[in-house]
């Protein structure tokens, strides 16, 4: 699949920004997002290729504007909905209940 994720050789992204003494996670939710994706993989609900494809299917505008671990989160939710583990809208409903 040739979409925005296929970045090798693209022009125009500017200089590489680096951070000294970068933490493993910048926010607590990032570690949670990674852990939930990995438990989804470990539980056999989806495999690594399906998961990567779910992130590659994120629309190009969203792909560039959301952060790395948001892509993991959205990829995980998309896979769990596609596999019927979650109903569509279930996450949004739960967000309303706990906010």
């Amino acid at each position: 699949m040739n979409s925005i994720h296929d970045m090798g050789g693209m022009h125009g992204f500017g200089p590489i920004e680096r951070e000294e003494n970068e933490p493993v996670f910048h926010h607590k939710w990032e570690g949670k997002a990674l852990a939930l994706a990995r438990t989804g993989l470990a539980g056999g609900h989806f495999n690594l290729d399906e998961f990567r494809h779910a992130m590659e299917k994120i629309s190009p505008v969203d792909y560039l504007s959301i952060s790395y671990y948001e892509r993991w989160l959205e990829g995980t939710i998309a896979m769990l909905e596609e596999k019927g583990v979650l109903d569509a809208g279930e996450v949004e409903q739960r967000m309303k209940e706990i906010s």
Binding site: F25, H27, K28, W29, G31, K32, A33, L34, A35, L36, R38, T39, G40, G43, H45, S67, E70, L73, T76, I77, V85, L86, E90, V91, E92, R94, M95, E97, I98, S99
Partner: peptide, 27 residues
């Protein structure tokens, strides 16, 4: 985003698809 992660976590815990110690272990 933090809220969205919490919502997903709470659903998966409730459905018995993940256990809290497993999440802590991965982190």
């Amino acid at each position: 985003v933090a809220l969205r992660v919490r919502a997903l976590e709470s659903l998966l815990l409730e459905k018995g698809l993940v256990e809290a110690p497993a999440i802590d272990e991965i982190i």
